[in-house]
C-alpha cells in the first residue's frame, strides 16, 4: 500500500551547497539534501536524522565516495550512509529513509508522503 505522496517544493538551487548538504523541513519531518555537482544524478535526499544518535544532523556530514558509492559521513559518530540507498556501510541492518528528489526549474522538489493530518479523503480511495 503506497501512501499518497506529493512533490513538495523545499528550496531553490541557490540554497544548495556544492559537494555538501542542507536540511529542509518537510511534511515528513527533517530531510537532508545533498548536491554533488560532479555526479549523475547530482541531487540526493535522505532523512536528516542520524539513526545512531537520534539527532537531526546528517546534512552537516561530509560527503564523499567509498568504493564508488556516493556517501555521507554522520558528523557525530562518523558512520557512512549510502546516499542512493540509505544503507549504513558499517552496519547493513541500519538504513535511513531516502526520498526521490527532482529539479523543477529553479525549485528543488521532494516526493514526500502527504502528512496524515492533511490527508484528503481521496487518499483512502487511492490506496484502495
Amino acid at each position: 500500500m503506497k501512501p499518497r505522496t506529493q512533490w513538495q517544493a523545499v528550496c531553490t538551487v541557490d540554497d544548495l551547497v556544492p559537494d555538501s548538504g542542507i536540511a529542509v523541513w518537510t511534511e515528513d519531518g527533517p530531510v537532508a539534501i545533498f548536491y554533488l555537482p560532479y555526479h549523475l544524478p547530482a541531487l540526493f535526499a535522505i532523512s536528516h536524522t542520524d539513526p545512531f544518535s537520534g539527532s537531526n544532523v546528517l546534512a552537516r556530514g561530509i560527503t564523499g565516495y567509498l568504493k564508488g558509492q556516493p556517501v555521507v559521513a554522520s558528523p557525530l559518530y562518523k558512520e557512512h550512509f549510502n546516499l542512493r540507498t540509505g544503507v549504513c556501510l558499517e552496519d547493513e541492518n541500519v538504513k535511513v529513509k531516502t526520498y526521490p528528489v527532482l529539479l523543477d526549474g529553479d525549485l528543488i522538489r521532494l516526493e514526500v508522503p502527504v502528512a496524515s493530518a492533511t490527508k484528503t479523503p481521496n487518499a483512502a480511495v487511492q490506496a484502495a
Binding site: 554533488l36 560532479y38 561530509i62 564523499g64 565516495y65 567509498l66 556516493p70 556517501v71
Partner: peptide, 11 residues
C-alpha cells in the same frame, strides 16, 4: 583517484 574524495581526505 576518482572524483569525490571522502571524509578522511577532505578534512
Amino acid at each position: 583517484v576518482g572524483h569525490g574524495g571522502c571524509d578522511i581526505c577532505k578534512p
